[in-house]
């Protein structure tokens, strides 16, 4: 028996919205400790990793580990039928399920919707990501990071991110010209202005803005985002989801030919 009930179903809707442009189908692994998912985009440039802890669910039960292979597009179609204030319950009682049941219930418990989503058998292409001590970690407003990426993507396809002890600089160079946005360390009380820089070693890395813009679809999951970088390593962009877990995106850098 597997059953997971989310009090704030809207979080699940937002997670699926955030990844649906990046990945088409995923294996969700359910275990006693919670749900996890890892998937690469079709070009194998980026990777998304989701971890939801059992403690963050209103009810959670998973008697034995199961893998749920599903189409994100089809999942998204079903989740459109859930209201933003609804609870969402995922359920299956089969050992090797061919479908996953969904229950959506509104706050007054006056409306209950029930759906079943056909599951797929997908090759598992899980990558081992070691725990990494990143040499530059930036925590800032997710909305502000999203804005910077969006603005710069009209000038260039790539952005160079350069950190120093005091600031992080986002630079672009395109056909029409060049520019940069520098964000300084700022210990403001307001989330929107706050910028935390933990720089052990400065880094200078270049990334495709198209992917960063896709990651930023997760902006509504968390008011802050953390950018984790080490020289010659993928960027890890993390959105923490309150008590529930985290959504991480990894992006391979671009290198000079």
């Amino acid at each position: 028996m597997f059953e997971a009930k989310l009090q704030q179903g809207v979080i699940f809707k937002k997670i699926v919205d955030a990844i649906k442009d990046l990945v088409k189908s995923v294996n969700i692994d359910a275990s006693t400790s919670g749900l996890s998912m890892q998937a690469m985009d079709s070009a194998h440039v980026a990777l998304v990793s989701l971890k939801l802890n059992e403690n963050g669910f209103k009810d959670y039960r998973c008697d034995r580990p199961i893998t749920l292979g599903l189409s994100i597009e089809n999942l998204s179609k079903i989740l459109k039928c859930a209201g933003n204030d609804d609870t969402i319950t995922l359920q299956t009682d089969e050992e090797e399920p061919s479908s996953l049941k969904f229950f959506f219930e509104n706050q007054q418990a006056s409306k209950i919707s029930e759906f079943s989503l056909n599951l797929m058998s997908l090759d598992s292409e899980s990558l081992g990501i070691p725990d990494t001590d990143y040499s530059s970690v930036i925590q800032m407003s997710s909305a502000e990071f999203s804005r910077i990426c969006k603005e710069l993507s009209s000038i260039s396809e790539t952005v160079e991110i350069e950190t120093s002890k005091e600031s992080v600089k986002f630079s672009v160079q395109g056909d029409i010209g060049a520019g940069s946005i520098t964000v300084k360390n700022n210990q403001s009380d307001k989330d929107v202005d706050r910028v935390d820089l933990q720089i052990d070693q400065p880094v200078k890395l270049t990334f495709a803005l198209r992917y960063l813009n896709m990651f930023n679809k997760a902006v509504s999951l968390s008011s802050t985002v953390s950018l984790n970088m080490s020289e010659e390593n993928p960027l890890m962009v993390e959105y923490k989801i309150d008590d529930l877990g985290s959504l991480r995106f990894y992006l391979a850098p671009k290198i000079s030919d």
């Binding site: 690469m40 070009a43 194998h44 440039v45 980026a46 990777l47 292409e125 899980s126 990558l127 081992g128 990501i129 070691p130 790539t158 270049t206 495709a208 390593n233 993928p234 990894y250 992006l251 391979a252 850098p253 671009k254 290198i255 000079s256 030919d257």
Partner: peptide, 14 residues
């Protein structure tokens, strides 16, 4: 010119 690397260049398949 810059080349886009693949994520598998960094993390191994499990």
């Amino acid at each position: 010119l810059r080349s886009q690397l693949h994520i598998e260049n960094y993390y191994r398949l499990e």
